[in-house]
Design a binder for these strands. Structure first.
Lengths: 349, 349
DNA sequence: AAATATCATGCAAACGTTTGCATGATATTG
DNA sequence: CAATATCATGCAAACGTTTGCATGATATTT
């Protein structure tokens, strides 16, 4: 067919190193080295090569290069969802560090599905990524799929939701201590009955926050009052409202609430406000994570800044460090990012 | 040195197709085809190969494969910032579609820097990505760097902030019409003096929203009152408050405000509330973009759902369609995603 | 001036897969 | 039963770059 032949014929071939070499009557190796600014190549040649490359619109085929060098300069990132602010901040940090180190970042969403998480690790086994940064999905209870990557010598770094009982690189915040400090802050401003709206206790970080809450109470000789403690399924805004409704009707009413995230805290603020309970005078509220909304809600919400961006930076730095390590990696690292309690109006007495 | 030699020696080589072939006394080509489930290979052989591959922990070197097939199954995405909710939603949509189509997504942040945007396009010229999805940074005023990619036959799809005057694939929402409808909605519920807090007018989408606002007023024989119109630099929460302060003191006060995004709208709600102006009774407020906060702020904010996730899906679909097109691409497409006005309490009379 | 060091470039193999074509063995047809 | 179709597998080249080593030409040292 005429048209087919024509369209095929028109498929212009990309310019390669060899084309450039022929054009300049040099060896391909010389071109390659010239483009690498190799010291063994004369300045004049380098200039000629650069000029010609520009002229012919030549750019290196990075796949061929990756193939030969066995380096892709790509790292993979698996997150439950990208559109959760915390994760998008972490990814932003990862991308920032990776970009400056010359690495590309390929992202995958597990959508909290274990099956999909496994599928993704299969894809990542193909040496496409030189290392992987992971935040576990909620369904993940075994780590065999990651162990496998590990055995294939693919460096791994986990962040936030990290595997318990598996030796691995981890970037975490000190959830226990952060919660401890947040609760202690409530005690210090004079709260006597401090409630907790917590996350799913099968997730390590939420359990640690609850433990921190309890430890602070205990330290100051406060009783642990079960009637003041509620655990949500997924720390949603709606669940927060549900439990806040219960808290507001208690007699005596709690005068402080430590919530495991900002959504539930904001929800609590609104529920208490609707019942005309003054914040922070009658009840002080503290959240966790420093979501954008915490600076917008009235009163502004006291919360724990978990430094998500810095977690991303740290994760990328650790991972790339291990990728570029010549010797075999024989150690794992656990890095704890320092949090800070941002005291705002919701707990300023 | 002993240790060096040892560690070098220990660097276990990856299993290749050829290793597998030797082990099974088959040709490499047979292995390759077996793994591809090629019809020309007998079931028994396929089973043997699969079994052995599993046994030896073989996985294809996808770089070698990409290199040979000249297909990377990777698309690039350039966004100003990942941690802006709108973009993270779009990326989520892109990843979702791409994943199901067997493509990987590599992300880059331009951070609204033209220089960085150009750098990224340079990186993307290396045939690493088979196509690119882009949201322009604020600094971007020329498109030469993208034209260059275009000339190299790399399919491009722009979304949201798209290049004006450049023929290209674009995924947009109808900003004009959305703003028109939002404003008309305010008119329909009885607002007589409708204000506008707009975005930077050098950005197409914000200009279009302003035009839509004006058109709705004009259609209903309302005057365009300059004193009711403010343009922000970047539609920040803070800027919104600044201009809302001015609006609330006007006599007569506006009884409706159409804001070009939700941050400024939320800010306006709070400023009006502080001055004890009742919403929606005395002033109705409408935002744009359906940020999470719009469902949380009291009263809940009426806003335009821009369907960011769907934009991502559409962008990926269009791009991958073009990547897989055999014939030369001789057309560009502009897809307009339908928005919807979500009427909530802030404008419910 | 011979011996040696330095410099600029070229040669050729290698990386691991894919794929068109060839091959030989069975199965099917007239 | 000869001719042909179908099937399962193998051969070998190719993809574009990188890199250790070789080479020949100058420059520098004895």
């Amino acid at each position: 067919m005429q048209t087919f032949a024509t369209s095929n014929f028109m498929k212009k071939k990309r310019i390669t190193l060899v084309d450039l070499a022929k054009e300049l009557e040099l060896a391909a190796s010389t071109i390659s080295r010239a483009l690498d600014n190799h010291p063994g190549i004369s300045i004049e040649t380098k200039e000629k090569v650069l000029k010609k490359a520009e002229e012919l619109g030549f750019t290196r085929n990075s796949i061929a290069s990756s193939f030969k060098k066995n380096k892709t300069l790509t790292i993979g990132v698996i997150v439950p969802r990208i559109d959760i602010h915390f994760h998008s901040l972490v990814i932003s940090g990862i991308e920032e560090f990776a970009y400056k180190a010359g690495y590309n970042v390929t992202i995958f969403q597990s959508r909290d599905s274990l099956e999909r998480e496994k599928e993704i690790t299969k894809i990542l086994q193909n040496k496409m990524s030189e290392g992987v940064i992971i935040c576990l999905g909620t369904e993940t209870n075994s780590y065999e799929h990651f162990e496998k990557l590990n055995r294939m010598k693919v460096p791994l770094v986990f962040y936030d939701r990290v595997p318990t009982g598996m030796e691995a690189n981890k970037i975490v915040i000190n959830d226990f201590e952060s919660a401890f400090k947040a609760t202690e802050h409530l005690i210090e401003i004079g709260c006597k009955r401090i409630s907790h709206i917590g996350g799913n206790q099968s997730t390590g970080i939420f359990k640690a926050r609850f433990e921190g809450y309890k430890a602070a109470l205990t330290k100051h000789d406060f009783p642990i009052d079960e009637s003041l403690i509620y655990f949500t399924k997924d720390l949603s805004y709606e669940e927060g409202a549900l439990f806040a409704e219960k808290l507001v009707d208690l007699v005596p009413r709690p005068d402080g609430v430590f919530c495991s995230n900002d959504y539930t805290a904001v929800s609590a603020i609104q529920v208490f406000q609707k019942k005309l309970v003054k914040i922070p005078e009658e009840v002080a509220i503290v959240g966790f994570s420093n979501y954008p909304i915490s600076k917008i809600i009235e009163p502004h919400l006291t919360t724990v800044n978990d430094r998500a961006f810095e977690m991303g930076l740290a994760a990328a730095k650790l991972l790339i460090g291990q990728i570029e390590e010549e010797e075999e990696i024989i150690q794992t690292e656990i890095i704890t990012i320092k949090t800070e309690l941002l005291i705002r109006e919701s707990s300023s007495r």
